[in-house]
């Protein structure tokens, strides 16, 4: 118990990591095939972490890639098979 308490205290000092993945602007969580995308906005509306934002044409851009938890919601609900994961 004491070990785990210490570990949790140590974690509190460091900035909290949101998930087990280490995504960033250069290491994107998803590959998006924009030539097949029809800008239906389903991925933007359904993402629980809201990592997408629409661009000028309404297609998704990954603006907050560090929050992605690879929950599969965006790519199973994409009707045009545009979204695939970079790690799965």
């Amino acid at each position: 118990m004491s070990d785990s308490n210490q570990a949790s205290q140590q974690q509190d000092t460091t900035p909290k990591k949101k998930n087990k993945y280490d995504f960033s602007e250069t290491n994107k969580p998803l590959n998006i095939n924009l030539s097949w995308c029809k800008a239906c906005n389903i991925c933007i509306a359904m993402c629980p972490q809201q990592i997408f934002e629409p661009d000028r044409d309404g297609r998704p851009i990954q603006t907050r890639p560090e929050d992605c938890t690879q929950c599969t919601i965006c790519w199973v609900h994409c009707p045009d098979f545009c979204i695939t994961s970079t790690v799965k």
Binding site: K38, A39, H77, P79, D80, T84, S85
Partner: peptide, 28 residues
């Protein structure tokens, strides 16, 4: 499952995107 498993089952000669409207549930 891999996230790109469905790409193996699509006929590559067919022109994608499909004929359905944007956001049509048929794709899901």
């Amino acid at each position: 499952q891999k996230s790109d498993v469905m790409l193996d089952y699509l006929i590559p000669q067919k022109k994608f995107p499909s004929v359905w409207c944007p956001g049509c549930g048929n794709g899901i």
